[in-house]
Design a binder for these strands. Structure first.
Length: 521
RNA sequence: GGGACGUUAGCUCAAUCGGUAGAGCAGCUGACUUUUAAUCAGCGGGUUGUAGAUUCAAGUUCUACACGUCCCA
């Protein structure tokens, strides 16, 4: 009996001693047994010589039976090669005088062998639990089945896992638990690890791509007096020392533009933004945006940059300019398709009038879409575009020359009345990246803000707020510039073939778990 | 905000018409010196999300709530 178990109150059932779960007690008992055998339960370090992948790579053909590589010769040994590995015990097969374990580190999984005659402290291996992290050292050999395996001569526990691993066969399936205990998801589900490795590769590629083109990475403030750059409801918070209400940023745009005024000609930021809106399969209240701006170009120049970026990204991650998303193959070959918004809407909705004629559009919409009767006229174009045009845009497509009324920060089109020099990139039916010729006429920008303010006064709480400090910056002169924004989360969904943003966020926002006996307001 | 569905052992899942809540893995005890979802024998483990209601009897029916998934707005 261990101290833990024997010291527990004698009042209840064995399995509830000390309020701990049966399986936790069993593991604490095993830890105590290892301590009794002379092991330190929490050593400070372990001198690892190699990763699992390095050991496997040193002797190729050493995959599991049934693998594609040619099997190694059974019985082969390399007594001169010493390896010290560390990792989590994912599987343990004990057979009296011999035992096999699968040890997983970040690079991969290696089978290790404990033998009664070759491994020190062999008896104590029975106190290793699934999920424990151990350090092992020894020499490689090839088993009867042709699998490269490390024969362990010395080993030590590095930390005990006090909870059992999820089913080794089924893994962790419950989507909520996977998100709440992401660490368990990561240790047990290799495909989940792969998603976040893909995400890191995406961000790394974007940074390298932009850095190579002389863009400078910057950081704007997340606490802002006037949250701007898009239409969204912000989170509000209070700064005590200044006794002032701030908002968390809803986009990166207006501060990057201030830097264009300041003379930085190519800037980008990859950063967290916050929108106080609903949570669903494609929305999380905090998410990561890329925004990039360069001076002396327009939206056509930016479209070329964006398609080059995405093409190179898909090639870098997938090895070819194609990917499969939710069963559909998407082709990122250059150049991406350009599709005129007005023409596309007119054809898709079979309109016999110019959709920019908002009065006619209103009449038509009220007849065909009574559910939009309360939608303001200026948002109707956007709504109808979403219904009729977006689903058609599977392969990467720039939807060009969007209505001016929904683009308060964009230059009016140089030749087409009522339109803006704005192109929205769509992939797989959703908007991935808006691209602008940025409005740099300070007086025009002021007038646009005032129109937004009127909408806000009329009850549209998503309308853009007026930002006097930003207007002052514009009055100093911002060079003609192009800008773009892109959701990193959605981009990762595409590349990792996931249909929920929750799957590509390590720690998505979840409703707090109800506490037992907790007070509710 | 509305609707549908779901919540059972640590994990993955069963439980027929309302009638003693089960299995596999994990755990414990034992056997086993090349296993790999190891195998074999035995043993524990449950306030069936929470709170009520109906009933002789509720995992199962009803109500509310919590959390989740999907669809709609």
């Amino acid at each position: 009996m261990s101290d833990v178990a024997s010291a527990a109150p004698d009042s209840g059932d064995d399995h509830s001693r000390g309020g701990l779960h049966e399986q936790t007690i069993a593991r604490l008992n095993n830890r105590d047994a290892q301590s009794a055998a002379g092991f330190d339960a929490h050593p400070y370090s372990f001198a690892r010589s190699h990763s699992a992948a390095e050991l496997l790579a040193a002797h190729p053909g050493s995959d599991h039976p049934g693998g594609e590589a040619a099997p190694l010769e059974s019985g082969q040994t390399w007594p001169g090669e010493q390896y010290a590995l560390a990792g989590r015990v994912m599987s343990f097969r004990h057979m009296g005088g011999a035992a096999f374990a699968d040890v997983q580190d970040q690079s991969g999984t290696v089978q290790v062998y404990f033998g009664k005659k070759v491994s020190e402290q062999f008896a104590a291996t029975k106190n290793i639990d699934l999920g424990d992290i151990v350090g092992v050292s020894g020499t490689p050999f090839v088993t009867k089945t042709g699998q490269l395996t490390l024969e362990v001569h010395a080993w030590q526990p590095l930390v005990k896992s006090l909870h059992p691993l999820p089913s080794k066969f089924h893994g962790l399936q419950d989507d909520e638990l996977r998100a709440r205990r992401r660490y368990v998801d990561l240790m047990i589900n290799p495909e989940s690890r792969a998603v976040f490795q893909t995400r890191a590769a995406v961000v790394r590629h974007i940074r390298r791509f932009l850095d190579e083109r002389d863009f400078m990475e910057v950081e704007g403030p997340t606490l802002q007096t006037v949250p701007g750059g898009t239409e969204a409801k912000p989170f509000r918070t209070h700064h005590n020392a200044l006794d002032h209400e701030f908002s968390l940023r809803i986009s990166l745009e207006l501060y990057l533009k201030r830097l264009l005024v300041g003379g930085f000609e190519r800037v980008y930021e990859i950063g967290r933004t916050y929108r106080n809106e609903g949570v669903d399969r494609t929305h999380n209240p905090e998410f990561t945006m890329l925004e990039a701006y360069f001076a002396y170009g327009d939206y056509s120049d930016m479209m070329r940059l964006v398609e080059t970026l995405l093409h190179s990204l898909v090639v870098a991650v997938k090895g070819e300019p194609k990917l499969t998303y939710q069963g559909r193959e998407l082709d990122f070959s250059l150049p991406f398709r350009r599709l005129d918004f007005v023409t596309a809407l007119r054809e898709a909705a079979k309109l016999d009038f110019d959709p920019l004629d908002l009065a006619k559009l209103r009449v038509w919409s009220d007849e065909h879409h009574p559910e939009h009767r309360k939608t303001p006229g200026y948002k109707l174009l956007d709504k109808l575009g979403g219904e009729y045009v977006e689903p058609l845009l599977q392969n990467p497509t720039f939807l060009t020359d969007m209505p001016l009324v929904i683009s308060p920060l964009v230059k009016a089109h140089r030749s087409r009345e009522g339109l803006a020099e704005r192109a929205d990139l769509y992939v797989a039916g959703f908007e991935l990246a808006p691209i602008y010729s940025e409005l740099n006429d300070a007086l025009e920008q002021r007038a646009r803000f005032e129109a937004q303010t009127q909408r806000r006064d009329a009850g549209d709480d998503e309308a853009h707020e007026q930002d006097e400090d930003f207007l002052l910056a514009l009055e100093y002169g911002m060079p003609p510039s192009a800008g773009m924004g892109m959701g990193i989360d959605r981009l990762t969904m595409l590349l990792a073939d996931r249909d929920s943003i929750r799957d590509v966020l390590l720690f998505p926002l979840l409703r707090p778990e109800a506490k037992q006996g907790g007070q509710s307001d």
